[in-house]
Design a protein around this nucleic acid. Structure first.
Ligand SMILES: Nc1ccn([C@H]2C[C@H](O)[C@@H](COP(=O)(O)OP(=O)(O)OP(=O)(O)O)O2)c(=O)n1
Ligand SMILES: [Mg+2]
Ligand SMILES: [Mg+2]
Length: 913
DNA sequence: ATCCTCCCCTAC
DNA sequence: TAAGGTAGGGGAGGAT
């Protein structure tokens, strides 16, 4: 695309160019200073082929009129020239962003035009057109006003030679008005209600229909499949092998080929696979998964909307998905590939890398191309679909060769000719170079690998980062040192960014719970648990429905993660923490446009894939690991410019609206009161309708037991760590049973003697993300002893949650710090020696900790006790000494015994001490 | 230096 | 009407 994003801008430039063609040469020598003082920076990349004004020509043109062009967005840049810009970028920029037409018109009029009239800006409401990252290249781009006149282009159905270049494709006017032609989606309609995420059965229906979900699932399955096959064969390749021969096999227009298998009549006609045929008059926003080469000749591409494709190709036939058939083809394909590959790396359901060195050696001196064609013939025979194969000395070369081979061909890049082969390639064709990198490099007028190879390694690394810079440096020279590999997966997740429209937090909660169930289902299928969970949320940036029906539109992406103390695959534990973090984001409920949940730091796995071995190694060595302090994880977050006034007001003071107490409000100065009150009232209404998230909740791991017991579940580390499986059956059963029907006894530690009087200290409930308590800001220092948060208790869970079970406690106290404080009191108040009943209680407490695998806490406690008793011994040589030392040794022995009982071996780390 | 969290980018 | 998922590489910037 000439100026990324804009046919309007493209046309403007083109028209200008025509007008300037004579003029420019005439004025070539002559100077003007119309643009003097203007320092521009170009956003986006430019083409240098085709008939439109190129970037260089354009640059030269404005230079001759006195403007300066900056390579970087430096301080003296006065304007940014762009015909399209991602919204996030637009938001960050501090400079005026204008279209190229500003400069062209100024030159044409021989007078500097008012740039305000050429501003690039979004116009979501008027056109219903939104920007979003998905379609930065097509229908989602900034709309400029006022509307210039565009010459309509007659529909073409026959491919014209001149139109081979897709950059030259000029869509007709309908596309420009795409949004306005579409009637506003009625969000109250029955159809919408039945198809958004709150509809019953949404999740399953959605995943069953989502091509991208299938793609991801198949890839994952195929990696497992390949790993399994390879494992049984267990051939080891000499590595690194400088003479390796790599093939890259990829089905031609896979989905479209399957669609056309039984339809020879369609074989040479343009065909695309999508959900909607888009025959209903309006331009359909349904996405094309795959289109055949006849359709591509019209400029149609995979990923394009049906509406846009129909603009380019009226005769397009849209065929439905056949997911089962793709799956079967894929299996057949891989079965063949596994016979030829010494090593196979699954890339997708229609694509894989093969290392075929030995096949070549032993196959009766069969040349590479012949082998490739034999494989291709087998694939066609087995699937009825054609594949193309690229062959080279490394993965990159093979991948690039496939592009040459397509469609229905094989292409070999002979060893030694790699550099020459790469020179002519376009950088955007390099694997790993997408839209952003292409644009970035286009700024330096880098378009081909040859041009890229002129840049130094250090400069590339400075511009693009260390690894990326190095990758580019090597790739353009045809160098790629990667080996084929099939690593086990490192994360499991699920996310949905379509049809997400909520009205209240009950719906959000229910949805996240179901999403969690889905993720847990996938984890169990892979026999893994995870220690780290991440919540992802998309937040809409503009009011109004996006162009893509029920799509997420242009969004901010927020994520938040938490590390469990031990791996978990418990729906409840993962959901609870996920929902807590989601609420912490304080999103307005109808701003939510996407939700995802991912679990990483996996342990377990079928092939004995065993994350870090927590049990034998880390946990039991009693290394003094850092404790988990949620406050440490606070992080400043950029506030979006679209924050409402209330948020602004309160964030200025570091206050969360939810935490404001109405009684406190009345004590504020009247003017401040007046400023705040309307917002609070609005907020209160929202709360009643449950449109705002529940009040921030403490992470349950940080709650004192009395609070935790009320409405929280045990942490993963308490009931559901990876090591559970290593426990004796009896104990594991007990724990598992406890999760379903808790035994109340487990909540009640023995409470003899002084321990019953354990004093409560302040809880460790986090005020949340750098929030300060409201009353700190009140005149006179605020009101003490006010309940910390006036907000309502969390909404009753829509999902019936299992009864919580308690964590180990001493008396009613389970927080480690608090336990130690109590023990400190205990030791100093019984100088003569402890009450045996109390000792028994402490032993019980430690045993419970061990059983709940809170070994870190045991470690901390024992170390602390040892120091405490030792200090007592030194400080005052009281007669209690011997007694406390004995107590300590008894506790130690008890702990050791319990550990041995549960884990089969004693505390190694402790023996040393 | 190396880690961690929160992103962004890429590919199919 | 429509089904914009997901895993992995990697970078920025702060904590340790
Ligand atoms: N944006 C995309 C890209 C691909 N796919 C699906 C449909 C494709 O058929 C399949 C394989 O992707 P390819 O990139 O291999 O594309 P094709 O096989 O369709 O065409 P090609 O001949 O270029 O490989 O993945 C999709 O759903 N959406
Ligand atoms: Mg393909
Ligand atoms: Mg492919």
């Amino acid at each position: 695309m000439a100026f990324p994003g804009g046919f309007r801008e493209y046309m403007a430039v083109k028209r200008q160019k025509l007008e300037f063609q004579g003029q420019q040469t005439a004025a070539a020598g002559s100077q003007s200073s119309i643009l003097a003082g203007i320092n521009v920076y170009f956003n986006g990349y430019t083409q240098t082929h085709g008939s439109s004004l190129t970037y260089l020509e354009f640059k030269e043109l404005i230079l001759t009129h006195g403007a300066l062009v900056r390579d970087k967005l430096e301080g003296d840049v006065t304007h940014i020239i762009a015909s399209q810009m991602t919204d996030s970028k637009m938001k960050q920029l501090r400079k005026p962003v204008v279209t190229p037409a500003w400069l062209l018109d100024s030159i044409k009029e021989k007078k500097l035009q008012n740039w305000l009239q050429y501003r690039l800006y979004t116009n979501v409401v008027a056109s219903q057109k939104t920007l979003d990252r998905f379609g930065a290249h097509e229908e989602t781009r900034v709309v400029q006003e006022p509307e210039p006149t565009i010459e309509a282009q007659p529909e073409i159905d026959i491919v014209e030679a001149e139109e081979e270049d897709e950059e030259e494709e000029v869509p007709d006017e309908a596309v420009l008005h795409f949004g306005t032609k579409r009637p506003q989606l009625n969000m109250d309609s029955e159809w919408v209600k039945a198809n958004i995420c709150t509809a019953p059965g949404f999740l399953q229906k959605y995943f069953n229909s989502s091509r991208l979900h299938h793609l991801s699932t198949w890839k994952s399955d195929l990696r497992d499949f390949v790993a399994m096959q390879q494992a049984t064969l267990k051939r080891t390749l000499p590595r690194p092998n400088p003479n390796a021969i790599i093939m890259h096999v990829d089905m031609d227009c896979f989905f479209a080929s399957v669609a056309v298998r039984e339809r020879p009549d369609l074989r040479d006609r343009p065909v695309a696979v999508a959900h909607s045929a888009g025959t209903g008059g309006r331009g359909s926003t349904s996405e094309i998964a795959s289109c055949n080469y006849a359709a591509r000749a019209h400029g149609v591409r995979n990923g394009m909307s049906i509406g846009r494709a129909r603009e380019m190709c009226k005769s397009l036939t849209v065929m439905p998905y056949e997911f089962e058939n793709y799956d079967a083809c894929s299996k057949a394909l891989y079965t063949i590939l596994l016979r030829y590959g010494d090593e196979v790396q699954a890339v997708s359901c229609d694509e894989a890398y093969l290392e075929v060195s030995s096949s070549i050696e032993k196959a009766e001196a069969l040349p590479e191309i012949a082998l490739a064609n034999r494989i291709r013939a087998e694939i066609l025979e087995a699937t009825g679909c054609r594949a193309s194969i690229g062959i080279g000395s490394n993965m990159l070369i093979a991948r690039m060769a496939t592009k040459e081979a397509k469609p229905d061909g094989a292409h070999l890049v002979p060893k030694g000719t790699e550099t020459a082969f790469m020179e002519s390639q376009t950088i955007s064709d390099l694997p790993g170079v997408g839209y952003v990198l292409t644009e970035k490099l286009a700024h330096k007028n880098i378009k081909t690998c040859k041009e890229l190879s002129a840049l130094s390694l250090s400069m590339l690394q400075k511009e693009c980062g260390e690894k990326t810079g190095s990758m580019l440096y090597k790739a353009c020279r045809g160098i790629d040192t990667r080996e084929l590999e099939n690593k086990p997966r490192q994360s499991v997740g699920a996310e949905i960014n379509w049809g997400i429209r909520f009205q209240n937090y009950d719906e959000v909660e229910k949805f996240l719970y179901e999403l969690t169930e889905e993720v847990v289902k996938r984890m169990k299928a892979a026999s893994v648990k995870g220690k780290h969970i991440t919540i992802k949320v998309k937040r809409k940036r503009y009011e109004g429905e996006p162009a893509k029906v029920l799509g997420c539109g242009d969004c901010d992406n927020l994520s938040k993660s938490h590390a469990f103390k031990a791996a978990s695959d418990s729906t409840e534990a993962i959901f609870r923490e996920g929902y807590r973090m989601l609420c912490e984001m304080q999103m307005k409920v109808d701003d939510i446009r996407g939700v995802g949940l991912h679990v990483s730091k996996l342990e377990g796995g079928a092939g004995g894939q065993s994350g870090p071995m927590e049990l034998g190694q880390k946990t039991l060595t009693f290394g003094a690991g850092p404790s988990n302090d949620p406050l440490k994880n606070e992080r400043k977050r950029k506030h979006s410019a679209t924050e409402d006034g209330a948020s602004d007001l309160f964030s200025r003071y570091g206050i969360k609206v939810d935490e404001i107490d109405w009684d406190v409000l009345v004590q504020l100065p009247a003017d401040l009161q007046a400023e705040i009150k309307p917002y609070l009232e609005a907020r209160a209404t929202q709360q009643i309708r449950n449109e705002t998230p529940p009040a921030p909740q403490a992470r349950q791991e940080d709650l004192s037991p009395s609070k935790a017991a009320k409405y929280t579940l045990p942490t993963a580390s308490q009931v559901d760590p990876e090591v559970l499986r290593a426990l004796p059956d009896s104990i594991r059963k007990e724990l598992e049973a406890a999760m379903k029907a808790p035994d109340p006894k487990r909540n009640i530690a023995a409470q003899p003697g002084i321990l019953k009087r354990g004093k409560r200290r302040g809880s460790k409930i986090s005020p949340g993300k750098g929030q300060l308590r409201f009353d700190q800001y009140l005149p006179g220092g605020g009101i003490a002893n006010r309940p910390p948060s006036p907000s309502p208790p969390p909404a009753a869970p829509v999902i019936p949650l299992p009864e919580p079970i308690g964590r180990p406690a001493l008396g009613s106290v389970s927080d480690g710090d608090m336990v130690r404080a109590m023990l400190s009191d205990w030791i100093s108040s019984y100088r003569g020696g402890p009450d045996p009943e109390d000792v028994e209680a402490v032993i019980q407490y430690i045993s419970n900790l061990v059983q709940d695998m809170e070994l870190e806490e045991v470690d901390i406690l024992l170390r602390w006790l040892k120091a405490k008793v030792g200090a007592d011994m030194n400080d005052r040589k009281s007669k209690g000494n011997g007694a406390w030392a004995t107590v300590f040794s008894n506790l130690m022995a008890a702990a050791n015994e319990e550990v041995k009982k549960n884990y089969g071996h004693p505390l190694k780390g402790c023996e040393e001490t």
